[in-house]
Design a protein around this nucleic acid. Structure first.
Lengths: 147, 147
DNA sequence: GCAGAAATGTAGCATATGCTACATTTCGTG
DNA sequence: CACGAAATGTAGCATATGCTACATTTCTGC
């Protein structure tokens, strides 16, 4: 493999992008579970299936995997709970989600589009970029107030 | 299934996010092929393998799929060319890529981070949001010039 | 023109995510 | 409490993406 032949461009970035995909699901799931738990006091596989629009079988398999990764806990025919680690990830994911969404709103994207785009974007925004988003959100709000 | 029970939130957005994943690969590939063709006059599977950091087997399978979708053409042991449709998609992808990247640069993200984040973000930015990115990029550049 | 290198192709395996169909368990209600 | 509905579990299949190992074809340089 041309590892010495100057691969033209970006060989590593894409690798990161691909690798991230596995984490996206984890973040989506713990975030969804946390959200459901704020309104229902119990999170069942059905809830997640409805939330994501997939079958309960798909949810079951992913939940099993995430349980193995220490993010959540389940027992047969029992509801799903987040571990300490899962809660931490959920909180971070939610915060990042909100920062991105508020930023899109601040730059004038309509609410529906902002919500939709945030779903896709949030997992790919690095801490550095996220920091810029926050700063710019503040600036734009300030400018808006003094207008 | 709580289809009548107010599914809490976002059941459809996530579906869209998942569905998009298949298109991402297509966009990444035609964009990469177009870029390679600007510098080498011929795009081989090896080039793509090096570009994405995957094996030539993975490239081969994806290229076959995209050929079946009418985005590109290949014959056994021959280089890869884009169809008219593939070129169109490549151009659109590149434009979107540049808009996103220039926007991140305009808001003060460093070049390396901007390049990396753009890879992940570009496929999830809707036309509406993209339009805002462009506008804001112009505004920020103007503000920068008059500073 | 021919031998070795480079590029492609093929076989077979793995993981992640999606599904339907059917089995089992739990829950709710009469 | 028992029976049906709801929820969960299991089996088996599909697609997309990743790999290694090995076969085949093309290209290159002598």
């Amino acid at each position: 493999m041309p590892a010495s032949k100057a691969p033209l461009a970006a060989p590593l970035p894409h690798q990161r992008t691909r690798r991230d995909h596995s984490n996206e699901t984890a973040e989506d799931y713990v975030e969804a579970i946390a959200e459901i738990l704020t309104e229902k006091k119990e999170c069942r596989a059905v809830d997640l299936a409805a939330f994501f629009g997939v079958s309960h079988v798909t949810v079951k398999r992913i939940v099993s995997r995430l349980a193995g990764e220490g993010l959540l806990q389940t027992e047969p025919y029992r509801p799903i709970t987040l571990t300490r680690q899962g809660k931490r990830l959920a909180t971070m994911s939610r915060q990042r989600h909100e920062i991105v969404q508020n930023f899109l709103l601040a730059i004038g994207v309509d609410a529906a589009t902002a919500a939709l785009d945030t779903e896709g974007i949030e997992h790919h925004v690095s801490p550095k970029t996220l920091a810029r988003f926050e700063e710019l959100t503040q600036s734009l709000r300030a400018a808006d107030r003094s207008r």
